[in-house]
Simulated scan of single mutants.
Amino acid sequence: MARVVVLRQMPEAEETAAEIRARGHDAVLLPLARTVPLDAPPPFHDVGGFVVTSLQAVRALAAAFPGDPRPVLAVGARTAEALTAAGFGAVEAGPGTAEGLVARAEVLARESGRPLLYAAGRVRTPDFEAGAGAAGVALLVWEVYDVEPLDPGPAGLAAAFPNRESPDVLVLSVGQAEGFAQLWRRIAAEGRSVPRLLCLSERILRALPVDLRPFACISPQPKLSSLFDRFLPLTWDGGIAGDDRMSHDGREQRSRQETEPRHHEPTSATFASEAAGPDDRPEAGALRHGRLCRPGLARDG
């Protein structure tokens, strides 16, 4: 059974923890930030549809445009489900990355002949806006939330990393990668082993300091289900599926990593799932980080 630290904000952290426990693993909540809604009203303009690249923006959009029939582009399946549950009837789920919405946004803007309203956080990656701008898509950006850091304090850290144990840590956003890096600087002096960092994409891995990247694993696809199936498989008979968790070989490797110089990841490594190029394969990124990232075996039957 794996022990997994979840860095997400509430209430999404509780949902993720429930999924981890349903797979037979232990989950510990260690939120590093919280969402703060902003009061700015939406731009007063007729738009052809909406774009949402974060679950955090759904509530504000639904409050301002209840039951709106215009199309909504969602970054992925979970955001699409939340938008549908909030009353939007024409929701289209994207591939899981913000830039993956650009092509559909271009079509939607062209067909409607109007700009699109992008409900977003105050702090965000520029990928979608840059891609939309390059494609000639007119956007109205409405900042609906901000993110404030949280300090888990000594008690939170002790609960997440007790007795120098080295759990897995879910790293699902650039902000979480940056937050964990700051957190790790505080607790590394206590002699703890670096945990296995389960990253949703290689862009997120790139937000980690270079010395932490060799301990990171990359999801084959930028989806939680893909990450879980790859690195946190279902357990049965009280044990872990296959050899995904830190087996004897893995413990030996971690021991060597603690006593030998670490080899930093080549800087020529390319983005997986979030940039174009012939080598953009999440599998390749995961394999670069060695046996720590071996997938578990599928359950028989």
Rank of each mutant, 00 (worst) to 15 (best):
R3H: 12
V4H: 06
V6W: 01
P11D: 13
E14S: 15
E15M: 14
E15S: 15
A17I: 12
G24K: 07
L30C: 05
P31Q: 08
V36Q: 12
D39Y: 04
P41Q: 11
P42G: 11
H45C: 08
V47W: 02
G49I: 02
V51W: 02
T53V: 05
T53A: 06
S54Q: 06
V58H: 06
L61E: 05
A62D: 07
A64S: 15
P66M: 06
D68Q: 06
L73E: 04
A74F: 08
R78A: 15
R78D: 14
T84A: 12
A85Q: 11
G87E: 01
G87F: 03
F88H: 05
G94I: 07
A98Y: 08
G100Q: 04
G100S: 07
L101A: 02
L101C: 01
V102R: 07
V102E: 05
R104K: 09
V107Y: 01
V107L: 07
E111F: 08
S112P: 03
P115T: 12
A119W: 00
R122M: 05
T125K: 07
F128I: 09
G133T: 09
A134N: 08
D146P: 04
D146H: 09
V147L: 14
V147F: 05
P149W: 10
P154T: 11
G156T: 02
G156I: 01
F161I: 01
P162D: 00
P162G: 04
V171Q: 01
E178W: 00
A181L: 02
L183T: 04
W184Y: 02
A189F: 00
E190T: 08
G191S: 06
S193A: 09
L197M: 05
S201E: 00
P209F: 08
A216T: 02
C217S: 12
C217M: 11
C217F: 10
S219V: 08
S219E: 03
Q221N: 09
K223S: 15
R230E: 15
T235D: 09
W236I: 10
W236Y: 15
D237A: 14
G239M: 09
A241H: 09
S247M: 12
Q257R: 14
T259D: 14
H263V: 15
P266D: 11
T267L: 13
S268H: 12
E274R: 04
P282K: 07
A286S: 14
A286T: 12
H289S: 15
G290C: 05
G290P: 01
C293S: 12
P295A: 12
L297H: 12
L297G: 12
L297C: 08
